[in-house]
Design a binder for these strands. Structure first.
Length: 272
DNA sequence: ATGGTCGCTAAGCGA
C-alpha cells in the first residue's frame, strides 16, 4: 500500500534505443509507476533487468516487433495485469494493472491510441477510420467501468485550443480536428474522467507534450501539441496534488519526440 | 506552400 504515488506517462519511441534516458528519468524523477508507449519491442527483448536493477521490480509489457507497444515499470505491485485488444487488429496498444493508493485499489490503464494518418476523412483514410473506431470502442468499454481508475497515455489528440500552437492552423490537421476532439470528449465522459492536467494547469495556458522531430529548433519554434494525457475518476482526481510536463526531457540526448507527463497522488485519508 | 526527421529494419511505412 502506498499513501503517495507518482505516475508518469511517456511515449518513448523505442525503449531499447532510449534506455539511457528512461534510466535517467527513473533516477532523476523517481516515479512509482512509469507508463511507456511506443516501446517498439517484443516482450522477450524488453529490458526488464535494467529496470529491476534500479528498484523497479514490477514490470509488465505488451509489445510487438517494430510498432506500438506499451509497458508498466513499477516500484509498487501491479495486480491483475490485462491487455485488451481493440479493433481486432492484434495491435499492442493497451495494458492495465491495479495499484493501491491508501487502501483503495485504483485501476491504471495505459493507452497508445492510433495516430490516424494524414487525411482527416474516414471515407478515404483507413487509418483515420481506425482511430475513430478505436475511440468508439474505448467509449463503450469505459461506460461499464466502476471503481476508481486512471487513464494515461499517448491519446494522439490535442483537444483544446491551447493544447496546440495554432488552433486555426490545425483545425484540419489530424490530432486536432473537431471530429476527433468531440469523440475524445465522449470517451472521457463515458468513464467520468477528470483531465487532471487541465484541472491543475488552466486551459488558458498553452501546454504541449509533443514536438515534431522535423523542426530545426523544436524549442524555439515551439510548435507543439498536447497529445499525452492523464485522466482520473473524481475520487482519485481529488487526491492529485501536482502535475507537470517534463519539457526538458524533449531536449535530452537522443530524445523522444514526446515529453513525459507527471502526476502525483496523495491519499487524503492516510493516517499512519 | 512545401518539406522538413526519426525508428525499424533493411525499402518503405508509420509517426
Amino acid at each position: 500500500m502506498s499513501e503517495r504515488l507518482k505516475i508518469v506517462s511517456w511515449n518513448i519511441n523505442s525503449v531499447r534505443l532510449r534506455l539511457p534516458i528512461v534510466e535517467k528519468l527513473l533516477l532523476d524523477y523517481a516515479p512509482d509507476v512509469l507508463c511507456l508507449q511506443e516501446t517498439k519491442c517484443p516482450d522477450g527483448s524488453f529490458p526488464t533487468a535494467a529496470f529491476n536493477k534500479l528498484g523497479y521490480r514490477h514490470v509488465a509489457m505488451h509489445g510487438q516487433k517494430g510498432y506500438h507497444g506499451v509497458a508498466l515499470i513499477s516500484r509498487v505491485p501491479l495486480g491483475d495485469v490485462e491487455c485488451k485488444e481493440f479493433c481486432e487488429m492484434g495491435d499492442t496498444r493497451h495494458i492495465a494493472a491495479t495499484v493501491e493508493l491508501g487502501e483503495v485499489p485504483v485501476r491504471l490503464h495505459n493507452f497508445y491510441v492510433p495516430a490516424g494518418g494524414d487525411v482527416p476523412d474516414p471515407e478515404v483514410n483507413d487509418k483515420f477510420a481506425h482511430k475513430l473506431k478505436f475511440l468508439d470502442e474505448m467509449e463503450a468499454w469505459f461506460g461499464g467501468f466502476s471503481g476508481e481508475s486512471i487513464v494515461v497515455g499517448d491519446l494522439n489528440i490535442a483537444p483544446h485550443e491551447n493544447d496546440v500552437w495554432s488552433h486555426k492552423q490545425l483545425l484540419r490537421v489530424v490530432s486536432h480536428t473537431p471530429l476527433e476532439c468531440e469523440r475524445l470528449a465522449s470517451v472521457q465522459a463515458a468513464g467520468k474522467y477528470v483531465d487532471v492536467v487541465r484541472q491543475q494547469i488552466p486551459e488558458s495556458e498553452k501546454l504541449y507534450s509533443w514536438w515534431s522531430y522535423r523542426a530545426k529548433d523544436w524549442s524555439k519554434a515551439d510548435k507543439g501539441r498536447r497529445l499525452d494525457h492523464i485522466w482520473m475518476t473524481a475520487g482519485t482526481a481529488a487526491q492529485c496534488r501536482h502535475v507537470e510536463v517534463l519539457r526538458d526531457a524533449r531536449g535530452w540526448e537522443k530524445p523522444s519526440d514526446h515529453a513525459p507527463v507527471v502526476s502525483v497522488l496523495e491519499a487524503a485519508d492516510f493516517s499512519g
